[in-house]
Computed example of a mutant assay.
Amino acid sequence: MNSRENQLKAFDRLLTIMDELREQCPWDKKQTMETLRHLTIEETYELGDAILENDLEEVKKELGDVLLHIVFYSKIGSETKDFDIADVCNSICDKLIDRHPHIYGDVIVENEEEVKQNWEKLKLKEGKTSVLEGVPKGLPALVKANRIQDKVAGVGFDWEESSQVWEKVEEELQEFKDEVKLGNKDAMESEFGDVMFSLVNYARFLKINPENALERTNKKFINRFQYLEGKAKSLNKDLKDMSLAEMDVFWEEAKKI
């Protein structure tokens, strides 16, 4: 691995290239924080995909893309004299030191859970009026549910045992089934949301990331369905013309791959 000196040289090289691109490249000169925003979101999702695929070479590349965006925003901030990359680095360093009094202070913690609880309490002392202020409004609902539950658990609002959470899942499932029988669409949607929320909570107790779990299932389904499509094509058949029984044969084959 590279020495700290080489790491700093590499970061300095990136900052220099960013300065040059901002001054000389027509596309880079034109960008604003707003125009970069959607690209940053895409890069973050691409990084997430690489992590799920455990493709470390791709993780390295995608981390570079995300780092470029951080440097880009910081460069724009320096041009308006609002902040630069040093301010960004010092800001997160200060936050990490303040939020880790068990490392940089005299607070004693016994485990990871106590660290999380202290983290949320410290944020309230910093002026936040709610532990949920830090949950971005634009997060996908599944990720948001997980973050909400994680944050309130940080201040002690949580179940004691996973068995209690599963009982809640079963309770919500029954309520959903009851509404399905009645056929009230709005009530069905509401109860389905409760089922999802309680399942996310149960996953949290089992140390399962629900977003990662669902995305792995998405990828698994895509791979199996594309295998099915390939088999149908090799037989010169259209999926629309195949029976479910015929398709199921190839589906079962795909599951064994």
Score class of each variant (00 low, 15 high):
V165G: 02
W119F: 15
V131E: 08
F176H: 10
E252K: 15
C89Q: 12
E110R: 14
L244M: 13
H100G: 01
D158Y: 02
N218V: 05
W27V: 15
E79H: 09
V169A: 03
R4L: 15
V249C: 00
K220F: 04
W251V: 03
K137Q: 10
W27T: 15
T80I: 15
L15K: 07
C25D: 15
E42N: 05
S3A: 05
E114R: 02
K237H: 10
D178V: 03
N54L: 06
E53R: 13
K123R: 08
E57V: 15
N184A: 05
G154C: 10
N111G: 07
E175W: 09
K177M: 09
F83G: 01
E53H: 07
D248P: 00
K185Y: 11
L142T: 10
K123C: 01
D49T: 06
T32E: 12
N6M: 11
E170R: 07
N111I: 06
Y227N: 04
E112A: 12
G183I: 04
L56F: 14
K137E: 14
D248Y: 10
V88F: 11
A254S: 14
K75S: 12
E170F: 05
D82I: 07
N2K: 15
G183M: 02
N223S: 10
L244N: 14
F176C: 09
G64I: 03
K220V: 00
L15E: 05
F225A: 08
W159H: 12
V88G: 04
A50V: 05
G156I: 04
Q7W: 08
E20V: 14
M1N: 07
N90E: 15
K60G: 02
H100K: 12
K81E: 12
N236L: 13
E160I: 12
V131I: 15
E167R: 14
K121Y: 07
K233Y: 13
Y202G: 00
K30V: 13
K116Y: 12
L199C: 08
I257N: 04
T32W: 11
K233M: 09
E172S: 02
E191T: 02
E46N: 04
G105W: 03
L124P: 04
E79F: 09
I17R: 10
L56H: 11
G48C: 03
L21S: 06
N209Y: 01
Y202I: 00
I208C: 00
L21M: 14
A50E: 05
N236E: 15
N2I: 09
K116I: 10
V131R: 03
K121T: 05
V107R: 11
E133K: 06
K231P: 02
M196G: 01
E229A: 07
D84T: 06
M18Q: 14
L239E: 04
K255Q: 13
L139E: 03
D82P: 00
E110M: 09
D106R: 04
D84N: 15
W119H: 15
H102V: 00
N223M: 08
